[in-house]
């Protein structure tokens, strides 16, 4: 794997991702793991693994992004996840639009210009409603595996309305609905609708400029794409590796450092 010329690491709240790119900026290697409580140790382990692949890291710039970017002491530079996601997605699609990134504990909507620049963005507030944690919490309550949630939700037409304002309130509602014998699939569909309605409110804050592009681990859930299309009336497009867009963008910034064409300080 000697083709790796630059690295990007995305230390998210739920997963940690590292991406290597070649001289053209093409993603040629990656690792993705669940985030561990001691992020510094996990990052060090990632870098050890990377050394085994590329030999030495001495001439390979590393850009860190994500929630824990400040903890990556080995990074040449850190860039926010907003800028990195936009960079990664633009590289993937080659056009601007509206990017919706739904992560584990964080979601954001980013307006991207036709040239790939961030025009505007909005992030969810501290509350976990509107993020992957919203689904995760209720999935455990319903005893449905996370990777089955979307299919289950799409398996029915009926759905029950569920609060979109608070993850904790939503969980209480779910308990009440189960007690009243509401089918699990209908509850799941209502939960997805609730998350999407919150996301759409964020999209409207930035303003929809088609196409709608998605990134983040949560978009692997098919119900997210389907309901987002329903709510917005817009076709949504997914990158090949939605979870790696931030790390890919970071790696592209690292490549710019290597090429002495840095655009982000």
């Amino acid at each position: 794997m000697s083709g790796i010329k630059a690295l990007g690491i995305d230390v998210g709240s739920t997963t940690v991702k590292i991406v290597g790119v070649d001289t053209e900026g093409k993603m040629c290697w990656h690792i993705l793991e669940q985030a561990e409580p001691r992020v510094e140790d996990q990052v060090e382990r990632f870098l050890d693994h990377t050394r085994q692949v590329v030999g030495t890291l001495d001439r390979i710039p590393l850009v860190a992004t994500g929630y824990g970017r400040g903890l990556v002491e080995q990074a040449t530079r850190s860039v926010t996840e907003i800028t990195c996601h936009a960079k990664g997605v633009y590289r993937e699609f080659g056009h601007g639009g509206t990017l919706v990134d739904i992560g584990g504990q964080d979601s954001k909507v980013i307006g991207i210009s036709p040239e790939g620049k961030v025009l505007d963005f909005v992030m969810n507030d501290k509350c976990a409603a509107g993020t992957g944690r919203f689904l995760e919490n209720t999935a455990s309550r319903l005893k449905v595996p996370l990777d089955r949630m979307g299919d289950e939700a799409l398996s029915v037409v009926e759905e029950v309305p569920i609060s979109s304002t608070c993850t904790v309130f939503a969980e209480s509602e779910v308990i009440s609905l189960i007690a009243h014998g509401v089918p699990v699939a209908s509850i799941l569909r209502g939960l997805h609708r609730s998350l999407i309605k919150r996301t759409v409110a964020m999209i409207r804050t930035v303003g929809i400029v088609p196409p709608l592009m998605l990134s983040g681990g949560v978009v692997l859930n098919p119900a997210i794409c389907r309901l987002l299309e329903e709510e917005t009336g817009e076709k949504v497009v997914l990158p090949r590796y939605p979870q790696l867009m931030g790390a890919h963008g970071a790696a592209l910034f690292a490549l710019e450092i290597l090429n002495d064409g840095s655009q982000v300080s």
Binding site: T83, L119, F121
Partner: peptide, 26 residues
Amino acid sequence: EVDINDPLSHQTLTRIEAFLEILNER
């Protein structure tokens, strides 16, 4: 948006930092 009782949050700093990245690009 902030609550004046809270310390500076990571999200607040990220928003401002991302905004400065936009300005820097321009």
